[in-house]
Write a protein that binds this DNA or RNA. Structure first.
Lengths: 219, 219
DNA sequence: GCTATTCCTTGACAGTCGTCAAGTTTTTCC
DNA sequence: GGAAAAACTTGACGACTGTCAAGGAATAGC
C-alpha cells in the first residue's frame, strides 16, 4: 500500500465525507423546516385534529414528502415538539440579565409574561395540549418532562434573581414556584381564548402579588 | 264546555303528562348511563382517540344507539363532561365539615388530594384534556369554565376554612390559590403517569408547606 | 292479545386518516 | 451533457371515522 494510494483514498474519503455531511445538513434543514410547519399546524388545530395532509398544506410540499423525511407521524410530531423548546425556553433571560432593581425585574417579567400570552397564544396552548397528551401516550413523555424541567429552571432563574434583588430568598421550592406561575399562565390563557379580556387584565394586576408571595423579603 | 268534559280532558291530560314524564325519565336515565360509559372511555383513551364505536363497546349497546339518545358526538361528550362535574366537585367538603383543627384539615386534605390522584387518575387526566380542548374548540368552553369555577370554589372552601382554623386569613386571591394547588396536582399527576413515585411522594411532602404559603397566620 | 310506539341493531354511506409504492422532476457529480 | 442519486409528487390501499336510514325486537296501552 503506497503513500500515494493512501493519499488518494484519504482525499476521496474526505470528499465523500464532505458530500455526505452536506447532504445530512440539507436533510436536517428540510426536516426542521417541515417540523416548524408541523408546529404551526398543531398550534392552530391542536393535536387531535392535525393530519399529515393539513401539515403539508401549511408547507410548500405535498403530503408524501413527510414520509421521506420522517419515519412516521410520531417521529414528525416529536421533532416539532423539540422545535417548540428552541423557541420557548429562554424567554425571560434578557429581563433577568438587564434588570438592576427588583421592581424593574418584576415589571419586565410581568410585561413579558402577558406579552407572550397574547403574542404566542396558539403556541402555548399547543404546549399544554402536548403535555396532556403525554398523560395518555408515552411517546412524547420524555420530551415533555425535559421541556417542563427547562421551563421550571427558566422560572426559577427569574424568581431567584428577584429574591436576590430584594435581599430575600425564595419562599417555596423550584417546583412549587413553577407550578404557581404556570398555573396563573394557564388560567390567563383560558380567559384569553374565551375573550375574557378583563379577567386577563385582572390576572396581570395580580401577578406582582404572586411574585411577592413566592419570596420571603428580608425585613 | 261542561265541567264533566273539562274534568275528563284534565284527567286525560294529566295521564298523558305522567306517561310523558316517565318516558322522559327513562330517556334521561339511559342518556346519563351512556354518558358515564363515554366518560370512562374518554378517561382511558383521551379525547383525541375516543370514537363512538369504542364508547359503545364500553357500554352494553351498539354504536347506533348513541344517535338515538344524542344529537351528535359533541352533544354526547358535553353530557359526559357534565357527568364529570357531578363526580368531582364536592370531594373535600366532608373533610372541611368534620375537621375541628387546622392540622386535621390540612392532613385530611393532603390525604384526600393524593388519594384521588392515585384512585381517579384517568378521570383527572381527562379533565385536563378537555380543559385544553376548550382552548381549541369553543364547544365545551362554557362548561369547562363553569366546572373550573366550581373547582376553584371547592379549593377556596378548604383554604378559607384552614385559615379560619389557624386564626389567620388567605394570603392570596381565590384564583391564585386555585391555580397553585391545581398546578401541584397537575404536576404530581404527570409524575404519577411517568411512574415517578418518589417525585409524587416529594409533592406530597411539600403540599402542607404550600397550604401554609397560601394563608397568613396570625402572630 | 293486538296495535302502536319506543328502543335498539345492523349495515351502509361518504369522508378522512396514516402509510407506502411507483413514477416524475430536480439536483449532483464527473 | 449525460448518468446517477436525491427530492418530491401522485395516487392508491386498507382501516377507521361520524352519521343515518331501514328494519327487527321489545314494550306499553287498550
Amino acid at each position: 500500500m503506497s503513500g500515494t494510494l493512501r493519499g488518494v483514498t484519504e482525499v476521496a474519503a474526505r470528499k465523500q465525507d464532505r458530500i455526505a455531511r452536506r447532504q445530512v445538513d440539507k436533510f436536517d434543514a428540510r426536516r426542521t423546516e417541515l417540523a416548524v410547519a408541523t408546529l404551526h399546524t398543531l398550534a392552530e388545530l391542536g393535536y387531535a385534529r392535525t393530519s399529515l395532509r393539513e401539515i403539508a398544506q401549511n408547507s410548500e410540499f405535498s403530503h408524501g414528502v413527510l414520509h421521506y423525511y420522517f419515519a412516521d407521524k410520531r417521529d414528525l410530531i416529536t421533532e416539532a415538539v423539540r422545535q417548540y423548546e428552541v423557541v420557548c425556553v429562554t424567554r425571560y433571560d434578557e429581563v433577568v440579565a438587564t434588570s438592576t432593581t427588583a421592581e424593574q425585574l418584576r415589571d419586565g417579567f410581568v410585561a413579558m409574561f402577558f406579552d407572550t400570552l397574547g403574542q404566542d397564544a396558539t403556541l402555548h396552548r399547543l404546549w399544554y395540549d402536548l403535555r396532556n397528551q403525554s398523560l395518555f401516550d408515552e411517546t412524547f413523555r420524555a420530551d415533555v418532562l425535559e421541556i417542563d424541567g427547562h421551563r421550571e429552571d427558566m422560572v426559577w432563574r427569574v424568581v431567584g434573581r428577584y429574591a436576590e434583588l430584594l435581599g430575600g430568598a425564595p419562599a417555596a421550592s423550584s417546583a412549587v414556584t413553577y407550578v404557581t406561575l404556570d398555573g396563573v399562565f394557564q388560567r390567563a390563557m383560558l380567559q384569553h381564548f374565551a375573550g375574557n379580556t378583563e379577567m386577563v387584565a385582572q390576572s396581570r394586576a395580580e401577578l406582582p402579588g404572586v411574585l411577592d408571595l413566592l419570596v420571603k423579603k428580608a425585613d
